[in-house]
Simulated assay, not measured.
Amino acid sequence: MTPVQPLLRATALVKTYQTRRSPLRRPSPPVVAVDQVTFDVWPGETLGLVGESGCGKSTLGRCLLRLTDISAGTLEFEGRDITKASLHALRPTRRRMQMVFQDPYASLNPRRRVGDLLAEPLRVHKLGTERQIADRVAELLTQVDLRPDHAQRYPHEFSGGQRQRIGIARALALEPRLIVADEPVSALDVSVQAQVINLMTDLRERLGLTYVFIAHDLSVVRHISSRVAVMYLGAIVEIGATDDIFGSPHHPYTQALLSAVPVTDPDRSKRRQRILLEGEIPNPSHRPSGCRFHSRCPYADDQCRAVSPPLAAAERGRLVACHKPL
């Protein structure tokens, strides 16, 4: 029996941006948006990627699809190294990895009908005649709970939730194996968020999809994800099964994030201790020595300030970057 291999494997990924020179023309230090990120994504799973705004989640998601060039490290998709693949060499791979963008208003061209937006990737890859493409567009709209006649409308004629469904349909057009969803419900109302999340869960089960789900809403991540990776200042500080992460966080930063999740039960809310992190998030271009979290960590000591902890196994299926995991 052939062993199952990761659908996507990222090894020591780094993405840096060079800032502008100072007025004195001294070279400015680069901003490290993604710093030595390593993880696997397995077929059929949903990997939730969480962290504060500005921690590098969206940049990492774009790197995984090669929408942004990678500064260092390796990226493999379906066992093939695509880290430095040219645009021409990437074209067949593009069909199997797609993205759902955060803003359903900005991600759709307002001058084109929905049918043309969904048909464009099929025409680019020459997948069928015009009649076959029209049938596929109708099928895609039905898959996301819209009507085939919606293909004749423009994006401004839809609500935010419907536009995001169109974005999902466009991502499904080429029958991908991997979808990176960059905060796909953050711009939607709470009731609509639940509908879109349930739709994505249903599509994953029916079509055998694999998701990398980027979000800052931990309640949404807990509902849809099978594993969770926690990012801080460009690096993953903890990764493990969803129930393990939410039930027993090992990294102090993960613990602080989870303590901020609202609880509907008033009695539980009163008993729970809210952890407030002191200090500012460090500048990515001047990252502190040692552990990147030590300036805000209530448990930091001299070792934390001097030595950067590696992302290592704390228990089976759990990796933590901390000298003293909780």
Score class of each variant (00 low, 15 high):
Ile224Ser: 08
Ser248Thr: 10
Ile214Arg: 05
Tyr253Pro: 13
Arg268Asn: 00
Val212Pro: 11
Val230Gln: 12
Tyr211Leu: 04
Asp243Tyr: 00
Met231Asn: 04
Ser219Lys: 05
Arg222Ser: 04
Ser191Gly: 06
Val263Ile: 14
Val185Asp: 13
Ile239Phe: 04
Asp202Gln: 14
Tyr253Gly: 14
Thr242Leu: 13
Leu203Gln: 06
Asp265Phe: 12
Gln255Trp: 06
Arg204Phe: 09
Ala229Asn: 08
Ser219Ala: 15
Ala215Asp: 07
Ser219Glu: 07
His250Ser: 12
Ile214Ser: 12
Thr254Tyr: 08
Val190Gln: 11
Ile245Glu: 11
Leu258Met: 07
Tyr253Ala: 13
His250Cys: 08
Val263Cys: 03
Val230Pro: 14
Val221Met: 09
Asp244Lys: 14
Ile197Tyr: 10
Leu218His: 03
Tyr253Thr: 04
Leu203Val: 07
Asn198Val: 07
Ser226Ile: 02
Pro249Thr: 01
Leu218Pro: 08
Asp217Phe: 05
Ser186Gly: 09
Leu188His: 04
Thr201Ser: 14
Leu257Glu: 06
Ile224Cys: 09
Ile245Cys: 15
Gly208Asp: 02
Val220Ala: 07
Val261Lys: 11
Leu203Asn: 01
Gln195Tyr: 06
Ile239Val: 14
Tyr232Ala: 02
Val185Lys: 12
Gln195Cys: 07
Leu203Ser: 04
Asp265Ala: 11
Asp243Thr: 14
Asp244Trp: 05
Glu238Met: 00
Pro184Ile: 00
Phe246Gln: 01
Leu188Thr: 03
Ala229Lys: 09
His251Gly: 08
Ser248Gly: 05
Gln195Ala: 10
Thr254Cys: 10
Tyr232Met: 08
Pro249Ser: 02
Leu233Tyr: 03
Ser225Asp: 12
Leu258Gln: 01
Ile236Val: 15
Asp244Met: 11
Asp265Ile: 11
Ile197Arg: 14
Met200Lys: 11
Ala215His: 05
Gln193Glu: 11
Val190Met: 13
Phe213Lys: 12
Leu258Ser: 05
Leu207Ser: 02
Ala256Tyr: 13
